[in-house]
């Protein structure tokens, strides 16, 4: 879909990062560095939770910035810069997932479509936690791990939608654009994702909430 001049002008006026990207288009290296500084942590955070692997997340983030650089000459603002950036990130992550699946470097979870992580890590952890320490309160570190594993039970689309919503505070419209889906599809994805997360996390909340026996 072509971007009209008025749309481009609107985003240029509204979004300072779009203005920076337009400077990158004019070969301003300092502007590109500034954009990287603004987005690298956010990008790596989303990609790390998406892939569950820090080194892969950093490689993918670099690939995203490389694509931004290569696309600079044809850049025309048709959305907020962050939406455009995470559209690229979503494509890069999808390509990486397909590549990994082809090379069979990871075990594919056929039940939920997740391919970055081995199957049922949360279930395994639940059994271990239940067997070893059934009655104690979950501490912050463990809670963080439980949530991380719960995220990994979601399929790729649900996970991406959740991460963009939670970490990037994106609207449904922006998430839909980043993931090339309809707004209604995003509404359903996020609803199912929250319900799935509840199912995955609830046993821990109940287990952890039990008082310590004398």
């Amino acid at each position: 879909m072509s971007i009209t001049e008025s749309t481009a002008r609107k985003y240029e006026l509204q979004d300072p990062d779009v203005r920076l990207m337009l400077e990158v288009r004019d070969d301003n290296a300092a502007a590109f560095e500034e954009l990287m500084l603004r987005y690298q942590r956010r990008l790596i955070t989303v990609l790390e939770h998406l892939t569950s692997k820090r080194d892969i997340a950093e490689d993918l983030a670099q690939e995203v910035f490389l694509r931004v650089y290569r696309a600079r000459k044809t850049y025309k603002p048709g959305s907020k810069f962050s939406t455009w950036l995470f559209t690229i990130a979503n494509n890069v992550a999808s390509n990486a997932r397909r590549g990994m699946a082809r090379r069979k470097e990871v075990q594919v979870d056929s039940a939920n479509g997740s391919s970055f992580m081995p199957a049922n890590p949360l279930e395994q952890m639940a059994k271990e936690a239940s067997a070893l320490m059934p009655t104690r309160q979950l501490d912050k570190l463990e809670m963080s791990e439980v949530v991380r594993l719960a995220i990994e039970t979601l399929n790729e689309r649900q996970r991406m939608a959740v991460l963009l919503s939670k970490f990037e505070d994106m609207s449904y419209v922006d998430i839909a654009e980043s993931m090339d889906l309809s707004v209604q599809a995003i509404k359903s994805l996020l609803s199912r994702a929250r319900a799935n997360l509840k199912v995955a996390i609830e046993p821990y909340l109940k287990e952890g909430a039990k008082p310590v026996a004398d």
Partner: peptide, 12 residues
């Protein structure tokens, strides 16, 4: 409540 728990996820 489940959504709020996602805040426990660390920022890289």
């Amino acid at each position: 409540r489940t959504w709020e728990l996602l805040s426990e996820l660390p920022v890289s």
